[in-house]
C-alpha cells in the first residue's frame, strides 16, 4: 500500500491548457522516488499539484489513504507532506534561525531543541544562525531549505531540484543526507536534473515527457536500460 498515490492527474495554470495530462505516481513509505524528464515536462507542476499550490482538474490525489486534493498548501503541509520548491525556497530577509523557526511553524513545541537538532545535521547553518538568508550562497540556501523542511517532522518530502547550483561533491553529500533522512522513516520524492545521480540513489523513478508518464520502474533497471539512457537521459555512450 503506497503512502502517496496520484492517479489520472490533469492540472495546469489558471486560464491555460493542461500541463499535466493523466499523470500518475506512487510513493511507498520510506521510498526514494526520482522524477525525471526534460525541461518543461511538468515535473515542478506535478510537485506543486501534490503540495496544493496547483489544483488538479481531474484525477485522485491520496496521502496515507485520504484525499489531499483541493487542500490549501498549509493543510497539505499539516498532513506531513512537505514541499521544498525549486526557487524562492527560503525567506531572504529573515535570519537563518528565523527561517528554521518558520520551518517549524506548524509544530512550535520544543522549538529550540529542534533548531539545534537540524543545525547539528547541517553544520553550515549553525555557524551562521544570525545571518540573513539572503547572504547565503546557492548551495547553502538549498541546505537551509532542506533544514526548514526537516523542522516539522515530515512524512514525505517533495524536493524540487535540490542540487541545483551545488558542486558535484556537494550534490553527493546532499543525496547521502537524503538517504539518512529516508532511514528515519521519511519518504522522499525528488525532481533531479542529474538523472544518473538520481537513479544511483533512488529506489524507483518516473520519467515525464510533455506532461505525461513516459516510463517508470525500479531505478536500477532504468539505469541499465540502454534505450532509456539514450532516449530520455541523453546518454550518448
Amino acid at each position: 500500500m503506497s503512502l502517496l498515490r496520484a492517479a489520472g492527474i490533469s492540472a495546469g495554470y489558471s486560464g491555460r491548457d493542461d500541463i499535466l495530462k493523466d499523470v500518475g505516481i506512487e510513493v511507498g513509505a520510506c521510498e526514494i522516488v526520482a522524477i525525471l524528464g526534460p525541461n518543461g515536462a511538468g515535473k515542478s507542476t506535478l510537485l506543486k499539484t501534490i503540495a496544493g499550490l496547483v489544483t488538479p482538474r481531474s484525477g485522485t490525489l491520496d496521502f496515507d489513504g485520504r484525499s489531499i486534493a483541493g487542500l490549501t498548501p498549509r493543510d497539505v503541509s499539516r498532513r506531513g507532506v512537505v514541499f521544498v520548491p525549486q526557487e524562492a525556497n527560503v525567506f531572504p530577509s529573515l535570519t537563518i534561525q528565523e527561517n528554521l523557526e518558520i520551518g517549524g511553524y506548524l509544530d512550535r513545541k520544543e522549538m529550540k531543541a529542534r533548531v539545534a537538532e537540524v543545525c547539528e545535521r547541517i553544520p553550515v547553518l549553525s555557524e551562521r544562525r544570525r545571518a540573513k538568508a539572503r547572504t547565503l550562497s546557492g548551495g547553502e540556501r538549498q541546505l537551509l531549505a532542506m533544514g526548514m523542511a526537516l523542522m516539522v517532522g515530515p512524512r514525505i518530502l517533495l524536493l524540487d531540484e535540490p542540487t541545483a547550483g551545488l558542486s558535484p561533491l556537494a550534490a553527493e553529500t546532499l543525496f547521502r543526507m537524503i538517504k539518512l533522512i529516508r532511514d528515519t522513516g521519511v519518504a522522499v520524492t525528488i525532481v533531479e536534473q542529474n538523472a544518473i545521480l538520481a537513479l544511483n540513489n533512488a529506489d524507483r523513478a518516473y520519467i515525464l515527457v510533455d506532461g505525461r508518464n513516459a516510463r517508470s520502474g525500479p531505478a536500477r533497471d532504468m539505469l541499465e536500460d540502454r534505450e532509456i539512457r539514450r532516449v530520455f537521459l541523453g546518454d550518448v555512450d
Binding site: 503541509s77 499539516r78 518558520i102
Partner: peptide
C-alpha cells in the same frame, strides 16, 4: 507562497 507552505 512559501509562507503558506510553511503553515502560515
Amino acid at each position: 507562497t512559501l509562507a503558506n507552505i510553511k503553515g502560515i
